[in-house]
Structures are given as structure tokens and as C-alpha cells.
Computed example of a mutant assay.
Amino acid sequence: MDLPWGKNLVGSFYQPKAVFIDPELLKTLDKRFLHDGLAEVIKYGCIRDESIFRELMSYEDDEELLDNIEKIIYTCCNIKKKVVESDEKDLGERMILNFGHTLGHAVEEYFNYSKYTHGEAVAIGMAEITRRSEELNITKIGTHNFIEKILMKYGLPYKRIEMDKEKILHTIKLDKKSSGENINLILLNKIGEGFIKKVSIREIENYI
């Protein structure tokens, strides 16, 4: 559940008995919301499977994308299934599914959930944290540009936006991945290789 202080701060764990997905429904979506969902697809490519990037970059248009959407859905669901099964309570590896979300959730909250969709905010979060991690020599040079290129292709925001840094830092400190004086950030070695880095709350501004 979302609280006034941020997203996903209260919840419990129940595993589904089944997952039903109707790909035909995606054809009824406004272009903005179709691409909004692709931000999460791009996230899976970033953290676990570079081939997702190659697939998305190869499509000529949304029609070709939708012709191949079942394969994309299966790939992403399979990645999530493996990660969740290995860490049901979100105490370790499962945090990797939150790549781009630490800053993304802060962006959503900052603009009162009205200016950016969830996927758009996550897109900004993925691009910005990778830009910073490259500058800190953590991520392979060129990774940020690769992410920008695919976000641009699908009309998702990627440019740094002006926000009050203190307000953003305050929201991030309430993130569900924070613990005491530390927060677990999701970073990339390169496309397809995400990892969890424990960072002091005092250092967090170096990453945003």
C-alpha cells in the first residue's frame, strides 16, 4: 500500500496460485501507457537479460512490438519468477527488481503522482542512477547511453529533471530498501548484470 510518505511502504506476502495475462488487451492501450509498461520490460533487460534490449531495438514500430509481445511477456515473467522464488520475503536478491525504482518512486511522490506515470518515473530513475554510477566508475562506460537510446525510442523520459534535492533525499530515506543508516541501491555492472550495493544514507546524494 502507498502512504502519504511514499510508495509500497505497507504490505504482506501472498504468492499467486496462477497468473493470467491477456496480450490482446495491450492493443487497446493508449500509446503512452503501452510504452509506460515497457519501462518495466527495459528494467528486466537491464538487470538480467541483454537480449531484451536487442529485441526492443530491432522492432520497427509498435505493431511489430505487439506481434512479438508474448515472447517478451514470457521472458520477463520467467525472470521475475526465478528471482521471487529465490527470495520470497524481499530480503535479498528480490530487491534487484527495484532497479530505477528508488529515484522513480521519489519522482512520483514529488509530483504528487500526476505528472509522470509509474513507468515514466522508473525510466528517469534507471537513466539517472546509471549516469551517476558510470561517473563513479561502478558501471561500464556507455551503459547510460544505451539506456537513454532505448528510452528515447519508446518515448520515455530520460533527462535529468530539476527537483528540490532535500525533498527527494527525504523521500528516498523512507524507501522500503532502506535499513537503519543504510539503503540498498540497485546498480548495473553493465546491461544484463544488475547487483545490490549497500550505501550509507549519508552517501546517497552521490547517486542521485
Score class of each variant (00 low, 15 high):
D2A: 08
P4L: 01
W5I: 10
N8M: 00
V10P: 00
Q15H: 13
P16K: 11
P16R: 13
K17E: 14
K17Y: 07
F20H: 10
I21N: 04
I21A: 08
I21V: 15
P23K: 00
E24W: 00
L25I: 09
L25Q: 08
L29G: 09
L29C: 04
D30K: 14
F33R: 11
D36P: 00
G37A: 01
G37T: 03
L38A: 03
L38H: 03
V41M: 03
I42V: 14
K43E: 05
K43T: 04
C46F: 09
R48M: 12
R48L: 10
D49V: 01
D49E: 12
E50D: 04
S51Y: 03
M57F: 14
S58C: 05
E60T: 12
D61I: 00
D62Q: 05
E64I: 06
D67A: 14
K71W: 11
I72W: 05
I72M: 12
I73F: 04
T75I: 13
C76S: 14
I79C: 12
K82P: 00
V84E: 08
V84K: 01
V84N: 08
L91C: 02
E93T: 07
N98G: 01
F99P: 09
F99Y: 15
G100S: 08
G104K: 06
V107H: 03
E108Q: 08
Y110V: 11
N112V: 01
S114R: 13
Y116D: 02
Y116P: 02
T117C: 10
G119P: 12
G119S: 12
I124T: 07
I124D: 08
E128V: 01
I129Y: 07
T130S: 06
R131H: 10
R132A: 09
E134T: 01
L136R: 11
N137F: 06
N137Q: 07
I138N: 00
T139E: 06
K140H: 00
T143N: 10
N145W: 00
N145T: 08
F146W: 13
K149V: 02
K153G: 13
L156I: 06
Y158E: 06
K159D: 14
I161G: 07
I161H: 09
M163N: 07
K165Q: 13
E166V: 10
K167F: 04
I168S: 07
I168W: 09
K173P: 01
K173R: 11
L174F: 13
D175F: 02
K176M: 02
G180M: 08
E181H: 01
N182L: 08
N184H: 02
I186M: 02
L187M: 14
L188I: 01
L188M: 07
N189L: 07
N189H: 11
N189T: 05
G192T: 05
G192P: 04
G194Q: 11
K198D: 00
R202P: 03
E205Y: 12
N206C: 10
N206R: 12
I208F: 15
